[in-house]
């Protein structure tokens, strides 16, 4: 086996070409442009950098963005798991259509999502109106941001959990049942642990996606400083105030956060892979 792979590496052509092209393309489209952020921030000095990124308004925006993204990802984890469970385990009319529709937030432009969600969840919208008697405001409140972020993050949990759920060894459940486990026990001891890595990965993905979301949030959030202003909006606001360094400084913190997220997801993936293989 090892010998064969050794040969593979030598015989198949195109390493230089494809690798070179990949790296050149990545550099041109992504890496060099992204490095502008680093360089722009470098010019401002540490004192000003910390002053900008630790100002109360920026901190409030980070708190809101991270908090709302966490809540949205949590909602998606719970309901996404239920949806994935339903789609992979049960038969019911309209299942195929529903399954296909799960990807809608992924294919729908965020500006369309934004205006649509706003019109639905505003106090005179078809859903928002139902909450008015209880004094609950959805659009133009932090809740609206959570709604938008839940919408855009929905496919991530479902699509990460669904394949794992589908491929979960039926024999395992059967064995558990044969050994006298109740359905609940089977779920808790067999299905739960097997699903956990995928669920966490889905959660992390939904969170990462939500953190940077701009298009749909800008319509539905109230954009109030300290209250309903998310980080991407703050970056946009800084740009419009001609404050480029401020914008890039906030963006840099975002970028570091995103990189950490990506790295974390990669680790998670590896962990879940080994865990799954072992279990």
């Amino acid at each position: 086996m090892a010998g064969m792979i050794r040969t593979t590496r030598r015989v198949l052509p195109g390493f230089g070409l494809t690798m070179g092209y990949t790296l050149a393309y990545l550099s041109l489209i992504a890496l060099i442009p992204l490095s502008t952020i680093l360089l722009k921030t470098e010019g401002m000095g540490w004192v000003r950098f910390w002053h900008v990124v630790l100002s109360p308004r920026v901190i409030a925006a980070y708190k809101l963005s991270i908090g709302a993204s966490l809540i949205a990802a949590a909602i998606n984890s719970v309901f996404g798991f239920i949806v994935a469970w339903t789609l992979s385990r049960y038969e019911f009319p309209g299942k195929g259509a529903l399954d296909a529709l799960v990807d809608l937030p992924f294919a729908l432009p965020t500006s369309v999502a934004g205006i649509t969600l706003t019109s639905i969840y505003a106090q005179n919208g078809i859903i928002g109106r139902l909450f008015v008697p209880f004094g609950i405001k959805i659009a133009f409140a932090p809740l609206g941001i959570v709604v938008a972020l839940t919408f855009i993050g929905l496919p991530f949990v479902v699509r990460t959990v669904q394949p794992v759920l589908q491929e979960l060894e039926a024999e395992l459940e059967e064995a558990a049942a044969t050994l006298g486990a109740t359905r609940l026990q089977t779920f808790r001891r067999v299905i739960g642990p097997a699903m956990l890595p995928a669920l966490i990965t889905g959660f992390a993905l939904a969170f990462a996606r939500a953190l940077g979301e701009y298009g749909s949030v800008v319509f539905i959030s109230g954009n109030m400083p300290m209250h309903t202003e998310v980080v991407p909006l703050l970056i946009m606001t800084r740009l419009e105030e001609f404050d480029y360094q401020g914008a890039t400084a906030i963006a840099l913190v975002m970028l570091v956060l995103s990189f950490t997220m990506l790295f974390g997801i990669n680790l998670l993936q590896r962990w879940s892979a080994s865990r799954y293989a072992a279990g």
Binding site: K137, F140, G222, T237, E240
Partner: peptide, 8 residues
């Protein structure tokens, strides 16, 4: 303080 929504 009376402003609930600050659009951009």
């Amino acid at each position: 303080q009376n402003v609930p929504v600050l659009n951009s």
